[in-house]
Amino acid sequence: MTTKTISAGAIASLETSDGGVFSQRMTTTVMMLLAGVVLLFAVGFAQGSGSFMHNAAHDTRHAVTFPCH
């Protein structure tokens, strides 16, 4: 996914027609991917202080098949 985003960004700079709309769309794409990764890390991997994050999201981690314990 990441590789595709980077190559898409490279092609974006070559586009001339609808350039504004296009780059806005690619910016949104990249921002969304990054936000998704950050959120996923918080829910799936972060332990938090005193395992707060782990314990709160415990049952979700087991249900969505994240490595948990």
Partner: peptide, 20 residues
Amino acid sequence: VSNIVTGIAFSLMLVAVYLL
């Protein structure tokens, strides 16, 4: 709450793919 956050995280990625 963590299921909803997980839903939003995965949804961000799906919509990013649609946009891409």
